[in-house]
């Protein structure tokens, strides 16, 4: 699924990475606990979260994730968006809640992805 499709399904605002919406996402992870995100490797993943601090971006960066979606109408502080921009990570913000956002993407064919240890 392209990032642009995620943005349109979730009626999301693009906070950075406008030029990279054609990038393909293969799996997703909905989580507010960053260590849980770090526990499972996914391919070209999107991180869906309600947490809005810089560690969200660093976690995504460590896991080579391509996109972060902030849910529940949250808007991350400017420095968080700048950090993501520097890391080439697209940032979206949606008013949908976590459960609904994950459900919509899953229903549209975006899977959780295979769990690869290490």
């Amino acid at each position: 699924m392209k990032i642009s499709e995620i943005a349109s399904l979730l009626n999301a605002e693009v906070l950075c990475g406008n030029g990279e919406l054609d990038r393909e996402v293969k799996s997703a992870c909905g989580c507010d606990m960053m260590s849980d995100v770090l526990a499972f490797v996914k391919e070209q993943a999107v991180l869906i979260t309600g947490l809005c601090n810089p560690q969200v971006v660093r976690t995504a960066q460590m896991m080579d994730m391509v996109c972060i979606v902030f849910v529940r109408g949250k808007r991350p502080p400017k420095e968080v968006v700048e950090l993501a921009e520097k890391a080439d990570i697209v940032v979206l913000a949606t008013n949908e809640r976590m459960y609904v956002a994950c459900g919509m993407l899953y229903q549209s064919g975006l899977s959780g992805g295979g769990v690869v240890n290490g």
């Binding site: 606990m33 260590s35 849980d36 770090l38 526990a39 979260t49 947490l51 560690q55 976690t59 290490g118």
Partner: peptide
């Protein structure tokens, strides 16, 4: 509340 402290840090370090 910052997304850590779930008791997964050391296990993750060992795992990777």
């Amino acid at each position: 509340s910052l997304g850590f402290g779930a008791g997964m840090g050391l296990p993750n370090m060992k795992k990777y």
